[in-house]
Write a protein that binds this DNA or RNA. Structure first.
Lengths: 229, 229
DNA sequence: TAAAAAACAAGCAAGTTTGTTTGATTGTTT
DNA sequence: AAACAATCAAACAAACTTGCTTGTTTTTTA
């Protein structure tokens, strides 16, 4: 009673059917992971205590211990949770734009760059960075984080390729992709910069221009190769 | 006795003269700040306890409390310490290269980009990032960090301008500078990436190429303007 | 040289956080 | 209905960290 009123965990509780218990259990689990993620964003990884997570999730600490026997086990679960969430969010972001089958226009490129910027400004990105930062000096966390991070990069690149088939065969794809990703990360993590927004906007303008040039040059050289055959 | 043998704080202790106490005091102070910085790198900001700092510095906790009455006061001092250190390191890095007065060559640009990469791989950068990361969710720390960060960016840009007078009058300077800095930061903070070194190398190649193009175009347009006059 | 100031060492008390236990309540499945 | 799973509540000890306090030593100054 006090639980549901405080946080309304059961947002859309299914009617009582067979096997509801499992669903309910999964819901609390998700509520806990979601609460942990929120705590990361609001107070950072290090200050996120088990009691705070439980409070935020509207769950007793005892109940939480039932699902996750230790603080570390929660953190590990959040890593997996965020991994899936971030991939899902990327798909949703990409679903909004349908790329033309023909050549990319200036506007298309500009659009995708801005989307990449939006992506690193989502809450999930911040929470993920908190874990990544903590992993640097926490061996146990790092052991879990490292393969996840590598898998994320792999899947992320793969998805990018499928969304932009235009780049598919160009040798410049991977460096260009890295250029964008590293740059976005650097900008996202520079919260304290002076005139950040204006500077970011300018850099994004530049980036779009650069990508367009790379794209054009690659196209030309490809056409050159084909005609040379 | 146990102190000096454990860590050799007094690296080059001056002979006993008048006012030695002040120097010795400053040395312990520096030893503590240096120890804190090392701790940030090795175990992270959050796990850096006052006891650990004191141990690392070869100083008793009581002595440390005499210099810094609280943990936070140490952290604040480290911020100022790192601010100066990083500016000094940048100057030292730039002192190694003497730019020609004439136009920049491809090699010059390539060189400075690689130097920027070296810069974000120094210990001081990692330690600084630890503080920056902690500042995001710690208001008290943030209040100290924010003006320092802004001052650093300002001075950094200013130094860059004086080292590369060639860029001085080009309107493309600031976005190009930001492009480099944000990118370096993003790459430096991507420790867990697969094939990181190879990818970074490629991106740096690309960046050097891009900067060369920007530089050439700006030069041309400037010459164009002058001849138009 | 004697007094004052600075630097240092060691230990203690209060507060936090974690992981655990114990026991009760509620809801589900067979 | 009986067995079972999930949840909740409260309290506990152990470990850790912090800030403080009490002396001791060293250096400077009068």
């Amino acid at each position: 009673m006090a639980r549901t009123s405080s946080k309304e965990v059961a947002a859309k509780a299914p009617k009582r059917e067979a096997g509801w218990q499992a669903e309910k259990s999964a819901m609390t689990r998700t509520a806990i992971l979601d609460a942990a993620m929120t705590c990361f964003i609001e107070i950072g990884y290090a200050n996120t205590t088990t009691a705070l997570i439980a409070n935020h999730a509207g769950v007793s600490r005892g109940a939480m211990m039932h699902h996750f026997p230790s603080r570390m086990s929660v953190m590990k679960a959040v890593i997996a949770y965020l991994h899936e969430l971030r991939l899902k969010e990327y798909l949703e972001l990409m679903a909004d734009i349908d790329m033309p089958d023909a050549q990319l226009t200036n506007k298309d490129i500009r659009n995708s760059v801005e989307m990449a910027w939006n992506y690193v400004n989502m809450p999930s990105f911040i929470a993920y960075q908190e874990l990544l930062g903590a992993s640097r000096t926490d061996p146990e966390l790092k052991a879990v984080m490292e393969p996840v991070e590598k898998d994320f990069e792999k899947q992320f690149l793969q998805m990018a390729k499928s969304v932009f088939p235009h780049w598919q065969k160009l040798p410049a794809l991977e460096p260009a992709h890295d250029l964008v990703q590293f740059l976005m990360k650097g900008m996202a993590l520079s919260q304290m910069s002076t005139r950040r927004n204006a500077r970011v906007k300018k850099v994004i303008d530049y980036l779009a221009l650069i990508l367009m040039e790379i794209y054009d040059e690659s196209i030309e050289s490809r056409l050159g190769d084909e005609s040379a055959k």
